[in-house]
Design a protein around this nucleic acid. Structure first.
Length: 265
DNA sequence: AAAACGCACAACCGCAACTTT
DNA sequence: TAAAGTTGCGGTTGTGCGTTT
């Protein structure tokens, strides 16, 4: 289904990502954020280009990314927005929390485009209009009855009714921490695990800033992943603090952290 | 049973927009 | 203000897998 892994002439790996690469990238970004995509793979111990890392993170590894079946509401919203604004996938994705532009684009091309074509001309010959409201029964080319939900859905409708609602402290906010450590303090109001997480990140940041090696210390995901070479400086919590991200990164703990972050949202 | 075909989707590429120097 | 660097977007491709012939 995906390209087989290979190395290009510059020694940069392309193609499908292995679980180990995912692990390295996820560990690194959860720990340090994506401060510079171009430099990131070097420090994360990946033989990938930054662009590839960014894509993998944005479309697959981010905790808030939803995978799996689309609901009728999501389908209807995509179709409505596509009719209004065309192939502005990122704009459409902004209205569907947890869905990525790439995923929506794929979904459109494989499922919704055909449906949109069918809907364009209703059985009585009238043109499809997005103002047609609520659920309508249409018929596909084979004459089978098909329920197509066509609703005037305000872009924020799903936001409000979704577990991904911004009213809930979301992992999106957490991601923003990762991408901008300077904003950590403004987010400390978030409670529970996130609070611990954020304070930990802040403490790492402050501690490492004081030694001047926050961004420049290469390493880490690689070493963390390889427990045999686990950095001694991290063994007791790195800086003498009970740092969430300094626990041993075996597969289970990273997975649990990952699941927890999904759960917070 | 096997070959052919089509679907689905992760990943790549080129370019535009934005930011920094 | 311009050049260089970085990020994000949208189009496209490659390939595994299920279905059909």
């Amino acid at each position: 289904m995906v390209r087989a892994p290979f190395y290009d002439k510059n020694g940069v790996k392309k193609g499908a990502w292995s679980p180990e690469e995912d692990h390295k990238l996820r560990s690194y970004i959860l720990r340090y954020g994506h401060w510079n995509w171009r430099e990131l793979p070097k420090y994360a111990g990946l033989k990938r280009c930054g662009k590839s890392c960014r894509l993998r993170w944005m479309n697959y590894l981010r905790p808030e990314v939803k995978h799996g079946n689309y609901t009728e509401e999501e389908d209807a919203l995509i179709m409505k927005l596509h009719e209004e604004i065309g192939n502005k996938w990122s704009t459409i994705a902004a209205s569907l929390p947890g869905r990525t532009d790439n995923e929506i684009k794929n979904h459109w091309h494989t499922h919704l485009k055909k449906r949109a074509k069918r809907n364009l001309t209703l059985p009585d010959g009238k043109e499809y209009s997005s103002s047609t409201s609520q659920s309508e029964a249409t018929h596909n080319s084979e004459g089978e009855a098909e329920s197509v939900l066509i609703v005037d859905t305000p872009p924020n409708m799903i936001l409000e009714s979704s577990p991904w609602s911004p009213a809930t402290p979301s992992s999106t906010e957490l991601s923003s921490v990762c991408s901008n450590t300077g904003s950590i303090s403004s987010l400390n109001a978030i409670g529970g695990m996130e609070d611990i997480c954020l304070r930990s990140l802040s403490e790492i940041y402050e501690a490492q800033c004081s030694t001047g090696d926050f961004w420049s210390e290469p390493f880490v995901a690689d070493n963390v992943y390889n427990q045999d070479s686990y950095p001694s400086s991290l063994e007791n919590g790195g800086f003498g603090l009970p740092l969430l991200f300094d626990m041993n990164y075996d597969d289970d703990s990273v997975y649990l952290l990952y699941q927890s972050m999904k759960g917070w949202a």
